[in-house]
Design a protein around this nucleic acid. Sequence first.
DNA 1: CACCTGGCTTTTGTTTAGCTAAGTCAGGTG
DNA 2: CACCTGACTTAGCTAAACAAAAGCCAGGTG
Lengths: 167, 167
Amino acid sequence: MTDDLLADRDSWLTSTCSIARALDVVGNRTTLLLLREASLGTRRFDAFARRAGVSEPVAAARLRQLVADGLLERHPYREPGQRTRDEYHLTRKGAELLPVLTALRQWGDAWAADEAGPAIRLEHHDCGAAVHARLRCDAGHDVAADEIAVRPGPGLRRADRNPPTAP
Amino acid sequence: MTDDLLADRDSWLTSTCSIARALDVVGNRTTLLLLREASLGTRRFDAFARRAGVSEPVAAARLRQLVADGLLERHPYREPGQRTRDEYHLTRKGAELLPVLTALRQWGDAWAADEAGPAIRLEHHDCGAAVHARLRCDAGHDVAADEIAVRPGPGLRRADRNPPTAP
DNA sequence: CACCTGGCTTTTGTTTAGCTAAGTCAGGTG
DNA sequence: CACCTGACTTAGCTAAACAAAAGCCAGGTG
């Protein structure tokens, strides 16, 4: 019947997809590289540009956009004998992209690594064990790719592509 | 001392970063949207293009690249009374991007959602509980963003930017 | 008060990503 | 055998994403 939204994937609105909306914010390479730097503790403009390997104009534009989008905050600080500067640091909204960055790095380590192995290793501050991005269900089980079922959520709406009367 | 790689982030080679290498493969919007479709079960060319909301030329180019990169495989199939076609399906390499897609969707649900809530919900096939991307250490602890320490890995090499003698 | 440094902005140009519209081609159907 | 359909390709274009090089400005130092 027509309410079978899952079987009728064509009727889904692309605009409803959270992945697409996330990509509107972090959907380009340099943004993710700058967020990587922020997550590793980089704070200052020139360090962002140099470490992420992007040109200064691009770094300036992306950082401005990241602040506008609320992923980074600027706030002034002062080193002794230096003038006041602004540093950029992650907001909660930005920090919550860490699973995305970690999952990307993990995949890169597994499938696009150089011979020498991973360049950096994240470890749990408390116990020293390596940190990974994992899929897990709220009941606490580890979930493999083929153990996942897709269900419609409350935000799912159908595209209204067909007029009420037949042509 | 000069061996303090972690304190001297500038000396890290950007090219060594697995995130950057992962982004070389999946660093654009349409690629991720097509992989989203593949993970939701889309198999055929026109469905990929329509559901991901990308034009046919772009869909063709990206799908070809994804096959070349080993994230998708084409293989022929035949519906009764139809001619033989190729369908695209995820390889292991492609399927292991699921944590990336899930983390992106999760972030979008949390920070860029529309009012109605998430459009789709992943649940664990066995128990019906919602599936999320989580950071966890190998000792089994859930790890928050501020509980992570960064350590150099075996693949970390320094950029040789300074000549052996001072200027 | 001349100079330096960090943090940008401006300019110019190239590359990549994307679209629309139209065309091609193989194979199955009437 | 003419026609249709699915799966693309080709052609032509716009817009966004980058880079390199140079300039600008505020404030602190000598």
